[in-house]
Design a protein around this nucleic acid. Sequence first.
DNA 1: CATGAATGAGGTTTCATTCAT
DNA 2: AATGAATGAAACCTCATTCAT
Lengths: 216, 216, 216, 216
Amino acid sequence: MSTDLEDAPPAEAVKALGKRERTKKNNREAILDAAKIVFADLGYGATSVRDIIRRTGLASGTFYNYFKSKEEVFEALMDEGMRRIRPRLRAERIRSRTFEDFIRNAYRTYFDYLATDRDTFQVIRRNPNTVRVRMDSPEIIAGFEEIREYIEEDIRNGALPNVDAEYLMAAVVGIAMEIGDRMLRRPEMDAEEASTFATTLVLGGFRTLPHAGDTK
Amino acid sequence: MSTDLEDAPPAEAVKALGKRERTKKNNREAILDAAKIVFADLGYGATSVRDIIRRTGLASGTFYNYFKSKEEVFEALMDEGMRRIRPRLRAERIRSRTFEDFIRNAYRTYFDYLATDRDTFQVIRRNPNTVRVRMDSPEIIAGFEEIREYIEEDIRNGALPNVDAEYLMAAVVGIAMEIGDRMLRRPEMDAEEASTFATTLVLGGFRTLPHAGDTK
Amino acid sequence: MSTDLEDAPPAEAVKALGKRERTKKNNREAILDAAKIVFADLGYGATSVRDIIRRTGLASGTFYNYFKSKEEVFEALMDEGMRRIRPRLRAERIRSRTFEDFIRNAYRTYFDYLATDRDTFQVIRRNPNTVRVRMDSPEIIAGFEEIREYIEEDIRNGALPNVDAEYLMAAVVGIAMEIGDRMLRRPEMDAEEASTFATTLVLGGFRTLPHAGDTK
Amino acid sequence: MSTDLEDAPPAEAVKALGKRERTKKNNREAILDAAKIVFADLGYGATSVRDIIRRTGLASGTFYNYFKSKEEVFEALMDEGMRRIRPRLRAERIRSRTFEDFIRNAYRTYFDYLATDRDTFQVIRRNPNTVRVRMDSPEIIAGFEEIREYIEEDIRNGALPNVDAEYLMAAVVGIAMEIGDRMLRRPEMDAEEASTFATTLVLGGFRTLPHAGDTK
DNA sequence: CATGAATGAGGTTTCATTCAT
DNA sequence: AATGAATGAAACCTCATTCAT
C-alpha cells in the first residue's frame, strides 16, 4: 500500500518494476497517456488497441480491464480534457463581474490550456488531408451546456439581451475550436493573441444579436 | 432526441433505383450516394467498404474501379459538398459591394445549402457519444483559403482593418460549423435565423478586432 | 415451446445463500451449485470458468483450489448424480426377487430422482439447436457396468436367458435417457407414467431376445 | 463449368489445382469433411474453427463464407446424417406391411448406415472420460418426429394399441443410440446382430405397453 | 485459503483487396 | 467494366491461469 505511493518511480523506471507494483490507477493512466500519443502519431482511425497497449508495455488483455474499446479510451481522453477545464471556467465565471469579463477570461484560460496540453488536442488536429475526429462525450456536452447556462443566466439578469443562447454558445465554441486549431499549427503559439482575437469578435457582436425567436 | 432523426431510414435516393435503372446513373454516383447514407447511419469509423458496396447492389470488386478506399470516398463526399458551395460563394463575392454584404450572403448561402443537403452533413454530426469525423480535403482547404483571400483582399483595399486574416477566416468557419450543426438538430431548420445570427456576430465584432501582429 | 421452461431463472439454490451464509457450506459445493445452473443456462460449451465463479461471488483464483477446469466440474456433477443413484439401485437390486422387480424398481427410482433433481439434468437437455453434452465419467461408467453385472448375474443364475448383457444394459440405459428427457420436457412430470412405460417395454421384450453370440 | 465436372480430381490432387477451380459446392463439402475428421480426432469441444480450416487448406476467411461457427458446421453434419437416413426410413415405411416389419427394417437400415459412416458418428462417441456431444438440429428433430408420426398412424389404423407415441419413439431412438454406440466400439461391428437385438426388444414389449393417459 | 489484477496465448472474426471468369 | 469467392493479414477479445498480497 504505502510502498506504492512512496517510491513512485520516475517515468523511465516504470518498466523495471514488477508489474504488480503498478497500481490500478497507474495502469489506467498509462493507457490514457499512451493513447494520447499514439492517436496524435497515427491519427485516431489508424490507431488500433494493439498500438496503444504496445506502447504501455502492458499485456494486451490488461487493456480490457480498463476500457472496452479504443473509442472508450478516446472518450475518456476527451472527458479528461473537459474535466480539467471546467473548474477553471467555473472559477472565471465566479470572479467575472460582467459577461465581457467572463468571455475574455474564459478564452484566455482555454487557449492557455490548449497551448500546454498540445498533445491531447493533436488527436483532433491531424495532418492536412487526414481525417479529424471529435467526440461529444458526456463531459464535453456538459461543459458546453454549462456555458449555455451562464449565457441564460446573464440573459435573465439583464446582462445580456435576449439572444439565442444555444447559438451564442455554439458560436463561442466554434470560434474557440477553429482558432485554437490554427493557433496550434503556428510555430509560435500565442495564447494571448488568440484569446484577444476571439474575445473581441464575440464581444463586438453580441449586443446587436437578433433577439431569440425573431427571424426577420 | 436527435437520435431519432439520425436513424431515420435513408431509402429513396438509392433504393429507388433498382439495379436496373441505375446502369447509366454512373456507378460512381451510386457509390457516393450509398456512402453518404451509410456514413450517416453507422458513422464513418464503423463503416466498411463492404457496407457501402452492399448498399449499392454492386459487386465488391467494382468499388475499386472507382475509389481506392473508404477514406477516398469520404474525401470525395467532402469535396463534392465544397465544390457545390464554392461557385455560389464566388458569385456572392462578386455581387457583394461590401464585406458586410459578402458575409451576410455567404452565410445565407451556406446555411441554405446545409438545410437542403442534410444527408451529407449528417456524416459529421452523429449521436452524442459517437466519434465524429471531419476531413480537410484539398477542396475543403481550398474553400477555406478562398475565404481567407477575400479577407486579405479587403484588407488590402481598405474595406477591412488589418486583422489576422487566418483567424478571422477560422472564426467565420467555426461559427458556420457549430451553428450549422445546431441548426440541423433543431426540428425546424431555419436557415435564415441561423445566418442572421452568425452574420450579426461577425459583423458586430470585426471592426474592433486587434490589428494583425499586435499582441498587447 | 420447451424453451420457456429451460430459461426459467435458476435463483434459489445459490442466490439464497449470500456470500455471508455460505462460508461453511463448502466453497466446493457453491461452485458445483453455480455450475449446475450456469451449464443449464448457457449450455456446457458456452460456459466459461469465469461464468461459474462469477455466480458464486468467489474470486477467480479460488476456483482452482477446487477444480482444475470446467470439464472437471462437469465430471464432478455427473459423478455426483450417479453417486446418489447407485446406492438406491443397489438397494433395489437386493430387495428385488426377480429381474422384473428390479427393472421396475430401478426405473421408478431413476425417474423419481430425475424429477426431483431436474437442474442437474438440464445440463444435458438444452434448447433444440444447441449442442448437448454428456460425459461418461468413471462414476457414470461404473454405474452402467453395475447394471451390466446384475444382468450377467441373472444370466448365470438362470433368471435371464443368455442375452447380450452389454446390449441389454445399453438398451435399458438408452430408454431411461430418452424417455427421461421427454418426461422432463412435459409440463407435468409424471415419474410413474414414465417408469411404467419403460418397464413394460423392457420386460415385454427381454424373454425373446436373441441369445448372445447368435447372429442368424 | 464443364471442366469442373470432367476432371474431378482424385482427392490427393485437390491441392494441386488452382483455388479458383474448386467450386462452391466443393469448398462446403471440404469443410464438412474436414470437420468430421477433426471432431472425431479432437472431440467437439477441443476443436477450433482453425483446426477445421487448417485441414482443408483453405484460407481462414473462407470458412466464414460457408458457416458462421463451429456449431453451425456441427449442425450441418448432424443434418446431413439425418438427411441421408430419412429417405431410407421412409422407403422402409412404405414397403413394410406391419409395424413389426417397419421396426425391423428401420433398425437394420440404421445400424448398417452407422457401420458405414462410422466417422460422422465418432464425433459423438469419444474416448471414455471425454465429453460426448449431440445436437438436435432441425433435421434431427424432424427425423424423430417422422418416426413418431408413423407410430401415431399405426395407432389410428389399429396396427398399434393406443400407446404414448412420444415415449415409444423416444425408446426406439434411445435404444438405437445406445446400442449403436456400443456396436461401434466393438472390434467387429455386426449391424445385423445389433438390429436383431433392438428389434426383438421393442417388438416383444410394445403390445403390452400401457395405454396413453393411463397412469395406474 | 482467498483474492483479483495481470498475463498472453490463441481463438474468432472482419475486411480490404485480388483475380479468374 | 463487372462479378464475387477466395485470400490471409491483422484486429479484436476472451479466458484459463498465475501469483503477489
